[in-house]
Design a protein around this nucleic acid. Structure first.
Length: 202
DNA sequence: CTGACGATTCACT
DNA sequence: GTGAATCGTCAGC
């Protein structure tokens, strides 16, 4: 049975620890097309004002990033390369702009809906591998940015499944070379051996 | 108002 | 491995 993660899960200080804990949890969307869900197998932590890789680095506060300065438990969705909708979870207290990028899930429910949304002919790993692909499969778009993750449209739940520490790989984040030394931080986590983990499996 | 560019993906060589 | 797609965002003028 599913138990939705509540405000107290998101409203904690250690964004890196939360990113690790999100592995094995279930991301659910309930849209017009129906119910879809997938188990989270890859995440990245973004540590706000002190993290050069974060959109909120150095307190950069704009219309787009404002949602990260909001209270915990919201979704932050933004458009990347004009094409891809990337889904993040906002954590920690109001005015502390921590966020966690969900980079890959393993599909659980609604495979037919996911295939329809993505137009994929086959059900291969690419269906929900990578932040752009999983958002498309689950129907997540930028217009949903700011959504309350304790609501019923998008939420994350646990079902008792857990991943042992030695099956969690910690490594550097993808596509953040511009971040100088912060690009070297081990803020990316994924499930060892899972086929849905996106590029650069080391 | 303008220009540069991105927490990516995919087709093609 | 390389390059194009594609457009909202944001700094700078």
């Amino acid at each position: 049975m599913l138990k939705k993660l509540d405000y107290n899960f998101y409203n904690r200080e250690d964004v890196v620890q939360i990113a690790r804990e999100l592995l094995g949890k279930i991301l659910v969307t309930r849209m017009q097309e129906g119910f879809t869900s997938g188990r989270i197998v890859e995440t990245e932590a973004y540590c706000g004002v002190t993290d050069r890789a974060s959109h909120a680095y150095n307190g950069r506060r704009t219309a787009r990033t404002e949602i990260m300065f909001n209270d915990a438990g919201r979704g932050y969705v933004y458009l990347c390369y004009g094409v891809h909708h990337l889904f993040n979870v906002v954590t920690n207290a109001k005015d502390v702009p921590h966020a966690i990028l969900i980079r890959a899930v393993e599909p659980l429910i609604g495979l037919d809906i996911m295939q329809r949304r993505t137009g994929k002919q086959q059900n291969d790993f690419s269906l929900t591998s990578g932040p752009g692909n999983l958002s498309r499969a689950l129907g997540i778009e930028t217009r949903l940015s700011g959504i309350d993750l304790t609501g019923s449209t998008i939420y994350i739940a646990e079902d008792g499944y857990s991943i042992s520490g030695n099956n969690i790989v910690a490594t550097t984040r993808v596509g953040v070379n511009y971040a100088g030394d912060d690009a070297l931080l081990p803020y990316r986590f994924y499930v060892r051996g899972n086929g849905y983990v996106s590029a650069r499996k080391h």
